[in-house]
Amino acid sequence: MVWKVIQSEWLKIRKSSVWFPVILAPLLTIAIGVMGARHGQLLNRTSSSPWSSYYLIIVVAYSLLLLPLLTGVLASVICRFEHLSGGWKQVLAFPVPRTTIYCVKFLYVLLLVALAQVLMMFGVIGTGLTVLHITSSIPWQLLLRSILGGWLACIPFIALQLWVSMWWKSFGAPFALNVILTIPAVAVAHSSRFGPIYPWAQPMLAMLPSGHQFLNVTTKTTLTIIVSGILLVAVGWFHFQKRDITS
């Protein structure tokens, strides 16, 4: 049953526009990073850590702005098929548990975000080697910890965006809400008190290179991600279970 729902969801998205933002977000980030590195001359040959300097430029723009917006767009697109022409009625008419439908949609958003993270990482490596001509060894541990940490930090954010996207029919409303709540993250992320508990700031905190042993995430941020992730997944799932979807 679960596999059939996974296949059905794949048929919906494989030729849809969902792949465009997945590719565009890393491309924009890499372009910003290359221009910033060249303009600021941060990657000269005397730099002790050119990879870290280059990655720092990229990760701030990507994790603080593009990644939250990307996640919101993906959640909206995944639910858009059911909001069109009474799609929810058709889907829920089949003998498929709502829990399965919710989990499959959550899984696809999670995998698409993971794909964007991987593309971004290999974009950093590719441009660093071929465009910026960085000759020092690639810091695989730093990159992998950052990419994985940012991905895990998106879990509560994905749950929240999926909940909103299942609730609202309009594609623009969840995106507008996402933009409004992304803007304060620029200021909140620098606060040691509010940054770790603000979902829109958590991806940046998790992706910034740091000395923490478990990924790049502090204990406070890790606990916040776990608790908020469980809470938001539970609330979104419960609302989807109980809500009378008539469109």
Rank of each mutant, 00 (worst) to 15 (best):
G150F: 01
K12I: 02
I180A: 14
H39S: 08
L231C: 11
G123N: 06
S76K: 10
S48N: 14
V104M: 08
P196A: 04
T219W: 12
P156D: 11
H83A: 11
S247E: 12
Y198N: 05
Q141K: 15
S85I: 00
L43M: 09
L152A: 08
Y108Q: 07
M120P: 01
E9W: 05
I13K: 04
F81S: 11
T29G: 15
V104I: 05
L43C: 13
I147N: 00
K15Q: 00
S247G: 07
G128V: 08
R145N: 14
G40K: 03
S8N: 13
F81W: 12
V77E: 10
K89C: 08
S191K: 01
K105L: 06
L43W: 02
A93W: 08
H133L: 11
F240Q: 02
G149C: 05
S146A: 13
K105D: 09
I197T: 14
G195W: 02
A116P: 06
A114I: 09
V18P: 01
T221P: 00
V22H: 01
I158E: 00
I101S: 05
T29H: 05
F20E: 00
L70K: 06
N216H: 12
V73T: 05
M121E: 12
G40I: 03
P199L: 14
L92M: 12
G87D: 00
D244N: 14
V22Q: 07
I180V: 15
F238S: 08
Q90W: 07
L111I: 14
I125Q: 01
F122L: 09
Y198M: 06
L74Q: 02
L92H: 07
V96R: 09
H133N: 13
L28P: 02
K169T: 09
H83V: 09
Y102M: 06
F175I: 15
A189W: 07
G33K: 13
H133Y: 10
P199V: 13
I230C: 14
V131N: 13
L231W: 00
P199G: 11
H83S: 13
P209V: 08
S52R: 13
I57Y: 06
A159V: 04
G87T: 09
T100A: 12
G195D: 01
T100M: 10
G36M: 05
A234P: 04
N44S: 12
